[in-house]
Write a protein that binds this DNA or RNA. Structure first.
Length: 753
RNA sequence: GGAUCCUUAGCUCAGUUGGUUAGAGCGCCUCGUUUACACCGAGGAGGUCAGAGGUUCGAGCCCUCUAGGAUCCACCA
């Protein structure tokens, strides 16, 4: 059968993937050292983006390379319930239908989202397959699988027993739009225009004496419990006196604290411990009380002027400034550009609120992680990241793991119901407090302790359970996969979740299993658009990998994301890269067509690769030499042949070195350069002459075949489809011995010797 | 403010432990199609490797400083 002049990826990919699947190649083999990767689970609700394409490609390269080197590979795929993110997506969907989360009971909402997610998940799984991922589908996990939930519960309980878990009303970062708290990592900072308002607090018992404070949040004055000044600053003389909060006439002390900068603003800080992290620290140092004035809807509350109750904080701000102006207490207003914390999804400013949450004491956990990293029990590519991860762990703060959303793992804590109060709770904050019973009896267990107990309404931060995936997804503690493949070999993931996920996985794994979760971390960079800008739907600069795969082939896309890229380094995704990949696949295809013709002899070929003149000379088909092993002793007599084989040997050695140091982009450079410029441009051209002479033809045939088969092997991890398609063609002509390229042996550096 | 990375051909970037004449892809110019491949080939133009100083027999690579850019962390009310 005549091979067409161009490689048409679409005609082969589905079939080839099927052949691999049926061969059992994706499963761990019975022999060989273990090599395992846990696939970072893509969100089940989204479809494949080019970042996933990068992730899947890099991991597939690692796995295929390990497999060809005789390892028993286990690449465990999964999808993520992605608690908050999915709930946001689902709420947007509800919004389009003119509904909101408040139209459902939590149980209804949870079951609706589950249904939606399980339906969505098929899309991303089929797209991962389309990328050629050679993962072990038999071990597919979903982060809400019962065994993963069980592990999360065991860990929660263990943390509690070890006194590393506590429930406390502490300041949390809260998005009033989404109605949930976040950990410190989930808060994003944005530059926003704001107004720094300077206003005067009268000094007690001193007529016409004032202290001026500057703030961007005048409404929080109602919750002030002190004014702080620099210990040796310009307001030193006021320390110890009392200031009076206007509008509510509450007396507060003037204190000295090192956190206050004499030079900034007015040199005085109003201290609102309920709504500012820094103020809370000051309050702790000076044992100041905490007065809440903003509730979890972002509205004013508490013992404040009646007209302000229930008013949104931003509106209250304007009202208060107006009132203060009327009292002549506003000194000046200054426009400033400042950074404020915002919800990373909706960009709503984060409110800092004191809320009862579950906290993990992270310091002791981090200590073990730091030790393991410093002792190189875990290594990192790029190695510069080691410093970052250690620094983050050293400065870690306690982790709020409660989220006020329904889509997630319910927290296995129970509260004794309070005796009904004088009135029904009205505000959601009151309701929650009543339900979760601040100060009431708490039991940590999965099942209800009995009547009169109510379960915590919150769910875990998705990262709390995700950080246990390296062992939980493998079936900890009793499964074969856990016993054989834990710790996993490499954690390949985005540099952007180094702290969110990677650092915390190390902590949790050492804590729960006593072992590191993986031996090596490989971080890939961000895929940017052609101009080097972050891709985002709102910018409309998102590159869709599916379209590219359809048009140029999966190998072209894989090539585009790995050729010329470096670990941890962002790169710009351009169409040129993909076209380059497509062209290279086609080059491989055509070189193979040439060798196939040269190798088979040409007697039956109308448009044979070698022209009719060669027919008689190459009619002794290489197909009879069906043991490639024989090429270990090529015993070459022709200089050109010796040269190309020696270059091939060097290539294999260099590529091995590149793999050993995780330089995949560099490996593709080496192979590309050899294949195109040495093998195709020079050697194939020279072989045309050699094939004309009976004395030189047979040896040249062997060398051609050796070069192409070795190149196909080296290229297979990167471009699995075109290489396997060609291999199957060679196999059908008995030019190669190994049935499947995916299971073929990685070439030896001494090939041909 | 702290940290990391980057600055090499018009553009995007390689350059593996310092070692002859610094490379690739794309783009550009000339030529070429019964030739494995025009998704191609042959040839060519194009670089004081950001700047300055230092170490060295030798520096794109190591050290110091300067300038510009990116990212992460902290965050000032």
């Amino acid at each position: 059968m005549e091979l067409p002049k161009s490689y048409i990826a679409k005609e082969h990919e589905a079939h080839i993937y099927d052949v691999w699947l049926k061969s059992g190649a994706f499963k761990p083999s019975k022999t060989g050292d273990n090599f395992s990767i846990l696939m970072p689970p893509p969100n089940a609700n989204e479809s494949l983006h080019v970042g996933h394409a990068l992730m899947v490609t890099v991991e597939d390269v690692m796995i295929r390379h390990a497999r060809m080197n005789g390892k028993s590979t286990n690449w465990v795929p999964g999808t993520d319930h992605a608690g908050f993110e999915t709930q946001v997506v689902y709420e947007k969907k509800l919004q389009k239908e003119d509904k909101s989360r408040f139209d459902f009971t939590p149980e209804q909402l949870r079951s609706n989202i589950r249904e939606y997610v399980l339906a969505q998940q098929e899309t991303i799984l089929s797209q991962i397959k389309a990328l050629g991922a050679s993962c072990n589908w038999g071990e597919l996990y979903f982060t809400l699988d019962q065994n993963i939930i069980d592990v999360a519960y065991q860990t929660f309980s263990k943390l509690n027993k070890d006194k590393l878990l506590y429930r406390a009303k502490r300041l949390v970062n809260y998005c009033v739009k989404h109605g949930t708290s976040f950990s410190d990592l989930e808060v994003e900072y944005e530059d926003r225009q704001g107004t720094l308002t300077y206003f005067k607090y009268p000094i007690k018992n001193e007529n016409d004496a004032f202290i001026t404070v500057a703030t961007t949040r005048p409404e929080t004055m109602l919750g002030d419990t002190a004014v702080a000044v620099s210990p040796n600053g310009k307001h030193k003389s006021l320390i110890g006196k009392k200031a009076i909060i206007p509008l509510i006439n509450r007396e507060i002390p003037i204190i000295a604290d090192d956190a206050v900068l004499n030079e900034y603003g007015s040199g005085c800080v109003k201290v609102t411990p309920a709504h500012s992290h820094i103020d809370a620290d000051i309050a702790t140092r000076h044992k100041l009380p905490t007065i809440e004035v903003i509730d979890n809807r972002g509205k004013m509350m508490g013992d404040i002027p009646k007209d302000l109750i229930g008013v949104k904080s931003a509106e209250a701000r304007a009202m208060i400034v107006e009132k203060l102006k009327q009292l002549n207490l506003v000194e000046k207003e200054e426009a400033i550009n400042h950074r404020i914390g915002v919800c990373y999804k909706c960009k709503t400013p984060i409110e800092v609120l004191p809320i009862e949450q579950w906290w993990v004491s992270t310091k002791p956990l981090a200590k073990k992680a730091i030790d393991a990293i410093k002792k190189n029990q875990i290594t990192i590519t790029p190695k510069e990241s080691k410093r970052n991860i250690v620094a983050w762990l050293e400065n870690i703060i306690d982790w709020n793991i409660s989220r006020q959303i329904v889509w997630g793992i319910p927290i296995p804590a129970w509260y004794k119901k309070q005796v009904a109060g004088s009135r029904e709770p009205v505000l959601r904050s009151e309701l929650r407090r009543a339900q979760q019973g601040a100060g009431s009896e708490i039991k940590i267990q999965v099942d209800s302790p009995g009547t009169g107990w109510e379960q915590d309404k919150d769910t875990f931060d998705t990262w709390f359970s995700s950080t246990q995936l390296p062992f939980a997804a493998l079936g900890y503690p009793n499964s074969e996969a856990y016993k054989n493949h834990f710790p996993t070999s490499t954690m390949e993931t985005g540099a952007d979740i180094l702290y969110f996920w990677v650092a915390r996985m190390i902590m949790m794994s050492l804590y729960v299993t006593g072992e590191v979760p993986f031996k090596h971390i490989y971080l890939h960079g961000l895929v940017l658009d052609a101009q080097g800008k972050k891709m985002s739907k709102s910018k409309g600069n998102v590159v869709d990998p599916i379209t590219l795969m359809d048009q140029y082939g999966t190998d072209a896309l894989r090539w585009a994301v790995i050729h010329g890229t470096t670990a941890g380094q962002n790169f710009n995704m351009t169409l040129d890269r993909v076209i380059g990949g497509r062209n290279f696949a086609n080059k491989i295809w055509n070189a193979a067509r040439y060798v196939l013709a040269a190798g088979q002899g040409t007697e039956n070929r109308e448009n044979g690769a070698v022209n009719s003149e060669h027919k008689a000379l190459t009619s002794s088909p290489l197909g009879k030499l069906d043991q490639l092993d024989k090429y270990d002793q090529l015993d070459l007599s022709i200089k050109i042949n010796q040269q190309i084989i020696s270059k091939l040997q060097k290539l294999i050695a260099d590529v091995n070195k590149a793999f050993a140091t995780n330089q995949y982009g560099f490996a593709t450079d080496l192979i590309f350069d050899f294949f195109w410029h040495e093998f195709c441009d020079k050697y194939i051209e020279e072989s045309k002459t050699l094939l004309k002479t009976p004395q030189t033809a047979p040896e040249t045939q062997k060398v051609l075949l050796t070069c192409i088969t070795s190149s196909l092997k080296l290229l297979h991890p990167f471009m699995p489809f075109v290489t396997e398609t060609i291999w199957q063609e060679f196999e059908s002509h008995k030019l190669v011995d190994e049935k499947l390229l995916i299971l073929a042996k990685w070439p030896n550096e001494t090939i041909g010797k």
